[in-house]
Amino acid sequence: MFGRYLAKRLPYMMLVLFGISLLIFFLARVMPGDPARLALGPEATQEQVQALRHRLGLDQPLYTQYYVFVKGLLKGELGMSLVTKRDVSKDLIQRLPATLELVAVAMTIAILGGIPLGMLSALHKDRTIDQLSRVFAFAGVSFPRFWIGIMFQIGIAYTLGLLPITGRISGDPPAHMTGLYLLDSVLTRDLAAFMDSFKHMVLPAVTLSLSPLAQITRLIRASMIEELRKDYTIVSRTIGMPENLNIYKYMLKNAFTATLTVIGLLVGWLIGNAFIVEQVFSWPGMARYGVNSVLRNDFNAVVGVTLVIGVGYVFINFIVDLLYGYLDPRIRLKK
C-alpha cells in the first residue's frame, strides 16, 4: 500500500525537478547585465569581454547552453564561478553543510518547542499561560530576524560573554565526514569540537528558529482546540480513555498531521531566510554565498544555489508527503 503511494509520487517529483532546472536556468540567463563585462570590470576591452563570453559559452544559442548545462549537471558540474574561479559545485559542497546544519537545528528547535507550547496554550485556552504564549508567538513572527540576531549578539554574546558572537567554530573543526560539525564531532568522539561548535550554533539557530517556532505554536494551538471539540475526542473521553492518553496520543496525532504540510513549507522558508542570519553571524554557509553571487551576477553560482534550494524544497515536501500518507490513513488509502 505504502509502496504504491510512493511509486505514484516519484515520477511527479522528477517532473518538478526538471521544471525547476529549466526555469532556473533561463531566469539566470535573462538577468540584466553582462556577466563577462561585470567580471572583468570597466577597464577591459571589448575583445577581452568577447573572449570570456566565448569561454563561458555565452555566445552560443540558449538551447545549446542548456544542453551543455544539463550535460555538466549529470556529471555533477555546475560551471565555473566568476568570483572563485572554481566549479560552483565545489564551492557549494564546501558551504552547504554549514547551512544544512543551521537549518536542521533551527527546525528541530521550532518543532520540539512549538508542539509543547501550542499544546499548553490550547489546554489552558484564554488563561495566563495561553496569553503569554500568544504574545510570544506574535512577537516571534513580527520582529525582523536581523534585529533579533543583533540583539542576541549585543546582549548574550557581547555584554554577558556567554556565547561567541560570530562564526561556526573557534578551534579546529572536527575531522571531515559529513561536514556537519555537530554530527562529525559526535562521530569522531571529539568533545572539544562538539562544545565549540555547539556554542557557536546556539544564537544563529535560535534566531532563525523563532518565526517557525511561533508559527508552529499557533498552528498546533489552533488544531488542538479544534481536536478538543471533535466528536471522537468527546466520545473516547466519555467511554473511559485516560485523559492524558487521549490528549498526547489521540488528539496530538491529528493535530500534528494537520500541521505537517505547513512544516514542509517552513523548511523552505528557513532555507530562504538563512542568509540574513548567516550574514549577521558571519556563518560560512551557502545562503550568504548565494546573495553575493546575485550581487555580482555570478550566473553559474546563482543557478547552482537556486537549484540546491529548489531540490531541497522538493525533497522536504516529498518527505512530508510520505509522512502525511504514513500518519493519515485517509490519504494513504485513497486510490
Binding site: 471522537y232 475526542t233 467511554i239 473511559g240 485516560p242 492524558n244 492518553l245 489521540y250 493519515d328
Partner: peptide, 24 residues
C-alpha cells in the same frame, strides 16, 4: 464522526480495554 480517523479500530479499542477506568 465519532471514531478517530487516524487510528485503526484495534489500536483504539486496545487502549480502551487496556486502560479502562484509569484517569491518567
Amino acid at each position: 464522526t465519532s471514531l478517530n480517523p487516524v487510528f485503526s479500530v484495534g489500536e483504539e479499542m486496545g487502549d480502551l480495554i487496556r486502560w479502562h477506568g484509569r484517569r491518567r
